[in-house]
């Protein structure tokens, strides 16, 4: 990291501060970024959120299915993206459970099952104790095969998942015993950090049977541009990054309050550092351009 940036402006020879700024040692930027995230994290800053249409659409999609209808939740991420996605998962599970939807958990990522388990432990069990495993919810776990898993489930769920994650045969679990294919669900929600994820759910589940169920997705900020083309036709709702999580949390909490608000308030807490860091980035862009203009006016003759 040591080389380039910090001396390239040396030719200006003790010139103005602004012109040299253009070649600022990027480690100062790193330091500023570090501080702008560390300080709000320490101080737990929180700001109000205003639900965007996409978050609202997601909320409405869940609201629009009949109460008690089966919902498939696919956890297509790993701990690396949990910071952004876990708050969504928590809010989504709380939302569905508050409406008494039957929940089927699964994962296309090996470590997605872990995330699903965590969500069951932190949200479903403590706040919805009436949910019985096998009757009200089922954890199918992870199966390898990426989009192949979706394709097979589209035609034959028991072929893909002969048993649930604990090894119990599907036919012994009342909730899923009668399910033949994905059309048994009214809603499929994929919380995904990449491939395979929401995009594959749209392509291989919604593609062959577009009217059988609704698809909603939660995604990391980076994935959102890949999914945008599918919204709102192939995908009814979308939660975008931690902001989407924060907005959705607000919508859910307003209608279905929870005893311990912090359980589904993670997204909003993580929005604190966002504001400061975003302002820093905006400042950096402005600074970079001022430096460029200053440098240009000085070195215009060259």
């Amino acid at each position: 990291m040591t080389t380039t940036q910090h001396n390239a402006g040396g030719s200006a020879g003790g010139s103005s501060f602004l012109a040299r700024l253009g070649n600022l040692d990027r480690r100062w930027i790193f330091l500023a970024m570090g501080l702008s995230i560390a300080v709000p994290t320490l101080l737990k800053l929180r700001f109000p959120e205003y639900p965007s249409p996409m978050s609202k659409a997601t909320f409405d999609a869940v609201e629009s299915i009949p109460e008690g209808a089966p919902v498939l939740l696919s956890f297509d991420y790993d701990p690396a993206s949990a910071a952004e996605l876990q708050p969504m998962a928590r809010a989504l599970v709380h939302h569905c459970a508050s409406r008494h939807q039957k929940l089927v958990f699964m994962a296309l990522w090996p470590l997605g099952k872990q995330q699903a388990d965590k969500t069951i432990e932190t949200v479903l069990k403590p706040f919805h104790p009436e949910y019985k495993e096998g009757v009200d919810y089922v954890q199918l776990g992870y199966q390898s095969g990426n989009e192949g898993v979706i394709k097979l489930m589209a035609t034959n769920i028991p072929a893909q998942y002969p048993t649930d994650a604990s090894g119990a045969a599907l036919k012994d679990l009342p909730l899923v015993a009668g399910m033949r294919d994905l059309s048994s669900f009214k809603l499929i929600a994929s919380i995904s950090a990449g491939y395979p994820g929401a995009k594959e759910w749209v392509q291989y589940a919604n593609g062959p049977m577009p009217d059988a169920f609704k698809v909603v997705g939660g995604s990391t900020g980076v994935q959102v541009s890949q999914l945008l083309p599918y919204y709102p036709h192939q995908m009814e709702g979308m939660l975008v990054a931690v902001k989407g999580a924060a907005e959705y949390e607000m919508l859910v909490e307003a209608k279905y309050p929870i005893a311990q608000p912090e359980v589904i308030g993670q997204g909003r807490v993580r929005m604190g550092p966002q504001l400061v860091a975003h302002l820093l980035m905006i400042g950096l862009i402005v600074l970079g351009n001022i430096a460029m203009v200053a440098g240009r006016s000085r070195g215009g003759a060259r």
Binding site: M33, M281, I285, G288, N289
Partner: peptide, 30 residues
């Protein structure tokens, strides 16, 4: 952050669009 500082400079129409959009989205995100 360092990429934004270094690369988002208004050199021509294209880069103005690039940085302008990023600018708007960054503000709107918070």
């Amino acid at each position: 952050a360092s990429a934004a500082f270094r690369a988002f400079r208004a050199k021509n129409v294209e880069s103005i669009l690039l940085l302008g959009t990023a600018f708007i989205i960054l503000i709107a995100q918070t």
